[in-house]
Simulated assay, not measured.
Amino acid sequence: MLSLDFHGNIVHPMLLREGEMSVLIDTGFPGQIKDLRAAMDAAGVPLAQLQAVILTHQDMDHIGCLPEILQECGSRVKIYAHALDQPYIQGELPLLKDSHLEHPPKGRVDHTVSDGQELPFCGGIRVIHTPGHTPGHISLYVKKSKTLIAGDSLYSVDGMIGGIHAPTTPDMDAARCSLKKYADLDLEAVVCYHGGVCKGNVREQIVKLGQA
C-alpha cells in the first residue's frame, strides 16, 4: 500500500508485485507523479518497470498520474478499467464529478474488465463490479493474500471500515447493493483508497453495513 499526500488528503494506490510482474492499482491526483515515483522506488519497483495499471474508476484522484505513466512507459504498460468508465478515462466524455476541470487527466484503456473476471496477476485478481460511486467502479479481490481492494466503495478510519462516503457517491442504493458482493469473500484485509488498510473482523464489519 502506497501513501500519497495531496495537501493533507492522503490516498492509497496499491502496488502489487510477484516475480517480474508489477501492477499498480490507481495512480493518485494530478501532479503527484513525483510522489508516486518516489513511493514506487522505495517499494523497489521503479516506474519504468511497471507492466499494468488497473483503474478502479474514473475520478481524478485515481487517474491523475495516468498521462505521465503512459508517457514514460508507452505501450509496454497495459491499462485496465471497466467499460462503463472507459469513455470518461479516455476523455471522450467529461468526468462525471470533475467536469469543471479545463484539462482533466486522460489516457487510453487497453483492456476492459467485467464482473467476476479473474486477471492473471499475482496469483489471481478477481474483478468485482461495484457501481454506485461511479457506474464503472470496480473492486479487486487478491486471492493469494485474501485482500479486498475496495477503491472508493468504502472508506476507513483508524483501521476500521467507516462505510460508504455519501457526499461523493451519486447512487447510494447501487452502492449499498454492491457491498453484498463482498459477503462471501474470504477476507483478511480491506484496503480503502481513502483511509487505508483494515484488518480484523472486516467481513463482519461489511455485513453490518449491508444490513444498516
Rank of each mutant, 00 (worst) to 15 (best):
E72D: 06
I33K: 14
Q211C: 02
E68K: 09
Q32E: 15
H133W: 05
G124A: 02
V11C: 12
I79M: 05
S178T: 09
C122G: 07
F6W: 15
V109G: 13
C198W: 01
A52H: 05
T112R: 14
A52P: 03
V207E: 14
H62L: 15
T56Q: 15
D110Y: 01
A175D: 08
K97R: 12
E204Y: 01
I128Q: 05
Q90M: 14
Q86V: 13
L93M: 15
L209N: 07
V11W: 00
A42P: 02
M160S: 10
D152C: 04
G8T: 08
A174W: 00
F6P: 00
G44L: 07
P170V: 08
H82C: 07
D186S: 11
T27R: 11
T168V: 06
E92A: 12
Q49A: 11
S3K: 15
V23I: 15
H100R: 14
G196C: 06
L50Q: 13
I54N: 12
Q90E: 15
D85C: 10
C177R: 04
D61S: 09
Q49C: 05
G159C: 03
G107C: 04
Q71T: 08
D41A: 07
H133Y: 12
M14D: 10
S145N: 07
H57C: 04
T147A: 07
F6L: 09
K97S: 09
A175H: 07
G200F: 00
